[in-house]
Simulated assay, not measured.
Amino acid sequence: MPARWRCPWAASCSRCEPSTRSPSTSSRSPRRRCRSSRSATCCSRWAAPSSNRKSLSKWREASPPTPPAEPLIQARGVTFRHDARTRPVLENCSFQIAQGDRILLEGPSGGGKSTLVSLLTGLRTPQGGVMLLHALDRATFGASGWRKRITAAPQFHENHVLSGSFAYNLLLGREWPTSPELRTKAAALCKELGLDELVAKMPAGLEEMIGETGWQLSHGEKSRLYIARTLLQGVELVILDESFASLDPETMRVAQRCVLNHAKALVVVSHP
């Protein structure tokens, strides 16, 4: 597969294992190696549960083994070819996504990233191989059942702000009129994403009309709206396709922290 997988935020990566390097005498924790990547060293943690640790090996012996995370997605030999191409954009592609995974999918334009996203979300069907969710195929769940469990924020030019209230755009895809609990959750998520200042400026708050004839949003505000909309779906796998591209570095760090706090499993698509 042309795209390259690695785990950039592996503080809770279920695929990480301690490196075999001897523990350092400094206060820094030993590095850990991610089995989902051939080269990336992806996270670091304290090696022992107490300050009285004598060696990493003794701590390993005392610690109970961690059971492997349940596979959320299993792809086996997935192949897909666009009608206008003679060669498949994805060929014999196999991988797993476990609950709690944080995965960065990188690759050049035309490398099959967006095609893979469309297969994961059920918008396309593999022409070869199988894509399983909780060991069941898409036909078992049905199209709507599959999409209730996996959702994506498309690339900026493919996403939209509809003419309606800010709350309506946040909760697009959920029941409407919405419940007070979901509205409260949406307001809290806006605060985490730094959108609370925008909401405070609007005369009607979350009920302010936005869109072509309403309050105009900047690119960065729209991007965070799309991220919030995706997180509010309450799905098992969140996919963000170039969602951080239009954010400045500080806003991007705030948005990333929010996404990591709320996504049960996460795939972020980006150019190298």
Score class of each variant (00 low, 15 high):
Pro2Phe: 11
Ala3Asn: 10
Arg4Asn: 14
Cys7Phe: 08
Trp9Glu: 08
Thr20Ile: 15
Arg21Asn: 06
Pro23Ile: 01
Ser24Asn: 12
Thr25Pro: 14
Pro30Ile: 01
Arg32Gln: 13
Arg33Asn: 09
Ser36Val: 15
Ser39Leu: 14
Cys42Leu: 13
Arg45Val: 09
Ser50Trp: 08
Lys58Phe: 06
Trp59Glu: 15
Ala62Arg: 10
Pro64Ala: 15
Pro64Gly: 15
Ile73Ser: 10
Gln74Ala: 15
Arg76Leu: 14
Gly77Thr: 14
Val78Cys: 04
Val78Pro: 12
Val78Trp: 05
Val78Tyr: 01
Thr79Asn: 01
His82Ser: 02
Arg85His: 11
Thr86Cys: 04
Leu90Met: 11
Asn92Ser: 13
Gln96Cys: 06
Ala98Gly: 02
Gln99His: 03
Leu105Thr: 00
Leu120Lys: 03
Thr121Cys: 14
Gly122Glu: 13
Leu123Tyr: 07
Arg124Pro: 00
His134Ala: 08
Asp137Tyr: 05
Arg147Thr: 01
Ala152Gly: 00
His157Leu: 11
Asn159Met: 13
Val161Arg: 04
Val161Ser: 00
Leu162Gln: 07
Ser163Arg: 08
Ser165Val: 07
Phe166Tyr: 12
Leu171Lys: 03
Arg174Lys: 09
Glu181Ala: 06
Glu181Asn: 04
Lys185Val: 10
Ala188Leu: 11
Ala188Gln: 15
Leu189Trp: 06
Leu189Ile: 11
Glu197Trp: 05
Leu198Ile: 07
Leu206Ile: 06
Glu207Met: 09
Met209Ile: 09
Ile210Gln: 10
Gly211Lys: 06
Trp215Gly: 03
Leu217Val: 01
Arg224Tyr: 03
Leu231Ala: 10
Leu232Cys: 04
Gln233Gly: 11
Val235Met: 00
Leu237Glu: 02
Leu240Arg: 12
Asp241Met: 06
Glu250Arg: 15
Met252Tyr: 05
Met252Gln: 15
Arg257Val: 00
His262Met: 14
Ala263Gly: 08
Lys264Tyr: 04
Ala265Tyr: 04
Ala265Ser: 15
Val268Ala: 10
Ser270Val: 08
His271Val: 00
